[in-house]
Simulated scan of single mutants.
Amino acid sequence: MRNKILEALYANKGNYVSGEILKEKLGISRTAVWKHIKILQDQGYNIQTAPRKGYVLFEADDKLLSKEIESLLWGHTMGRELIVFDSIDSTNTYGKNNADHLMDGTIILSEEQLAGRGRRGKDWSSPKGTGIWMSMVLKPDIPPTEGVKTTQIAAAAVCKAIRDLTGLDALIKWPNDIVVNGRKVCGILTEMAGQLNKIDYIVVGIGINVNNTEFPEGISAVATSLQIEYGKKIDRKELIVRIIKNFEALYHSYIENLNLTEVVAIVRDYSAVIGKEIKVIHGTSERIVTVHDIDEEGFLIVESGDGKREVIFSGEVSIRGKNGYI
Rank of each mutant, 00 (worst) to 15 (best):
I219D: 08
S18M: 13
L168H: 10
V137F: 00
I228S: 01
A32D: 13
I88G: 00
D141L: 10
L57S: 03
V289L: 07
S253P: 00
K128H: 10
E262A: 15
A32R: 10
I274F: 12
L168C: 06
K35E: 13
R80H: 06
I199G: 12
D306M: 05
Q227L: 09
D100H: 12
A193T: 15
Q152G: 08
G105P: 05
R268P: 04
T49L: 00
A115L: 14
D62L: 06
L226D: 08
A161W: 03
E296G: 02
H282Y: 15
V203T: 05
G167A: 10
E262P: 10
L300W: 04
L57K: 02
G182P: 03
L82P: 02
L300F: 01
Y230D: 09
P140I: 14
I234A: 12
V267R: 03
A161K: 03
D89C: 02
E310L: 09
D89W: 01
E112D: 04
D293S: 07
G321M: 11
G218A: 07
N15G: 11
G207Y: 10
G95S: 01
E81P: 06
I206P: 02
G131M: 06
L239H: 08
R80T: 15
S135T: 06
E310T: 07
S90C: 05
L138D: 11
W133R: 05
D61Y: 01
K53H: 01
H252T: 11
W34L: 10
T150S: 15
T190M: 09
K25T: 04
G231N: 01
V84E: 14
N323L: 13
I199E: 14
Y230A: 13
T145I: 12
E111V: 14
A11H: 08
I199C: 11
K122P: 03
D269Y: 03
E296Y: 04
S220V: 04
G207M: 13
E248D: 14
E112I: 05
L300G: 01
A193N: 15
Y10N: 05
K198D: 12
L57T: 01
H101L: 03
V84I: 10
R30P: 05
T31E: 02
V33N: 12
V241Y: 04
S110V: 00
R2G: 14
V291M: 13
T224R: 05
V180Y: 02
I153R: 09
N246C: 04
I178N: 09
K128I: 06
N176G: 13
W174G: 05
K13T: 01
Q152S: 10
S253L: 07
G182E: 06
L40H: 08
K128C: 05
R119M: 13
T151P: 09
E20F: 07
E217Y: 03
S271P: 03
G19N: 10
A170E: 07
G121V: 06
L6Y: 07
Y10T: 00
K237R: 11
E256S: 09
S125Y: 15
L65Y: 03
D295L: 00
